[in-house]
Amino acid sequence: MKERRKIRVLIAKPGLDGHDRGAKVVARALRDAGMEVIYSGLRQTPEMIVETAIQEDVDVIGLSILSGAHLPLFSRLGELTREQGLDRVLIVAGGIIPDEDMPAVREMGIRAVFGPGSSTTDIVDFVLSNAPQDKG
């Protein structure tokens, strides 16, 4: 009965854009690295994402967005995670997020952004070394 702890990750696409190639490639890479990946799919509101993160008790939330709607959506998501006390959850994002938005995005609680050209190895490594270690 030793060491069955697994990193649980929620991969979600907030907003309306349907480009899920990146989200799916990353989901699979994390799975192949031995994690349990909950894929909740397209068109997720911040409310849906946070509630899912609670019920699934995930360690990591990965958000993918390419439509340019990231600022209002991440801002709401940041509010909700603080409200719900999900401070320990590691939140990362991928997609098209302009450099000048980075300070604001970090302020909203997104710890890292993996833009086009990122390698899944880097993403996996980042998650492995930054996922919270404090449970079970």
Binding site: G15, L16, D17, R43, T45, S67, G68, A69, H70, L71, P72, L73, R76
Partner: peptide, 11 residues
């Protein structure tokens, strides 16, 4: 619509 938040006029 609530789901349109942040998306209007974007792409």
């Amino acid at each position: 619509h609530p789901l349109a938040t942040g998306e209007v006029g974007k792409v």
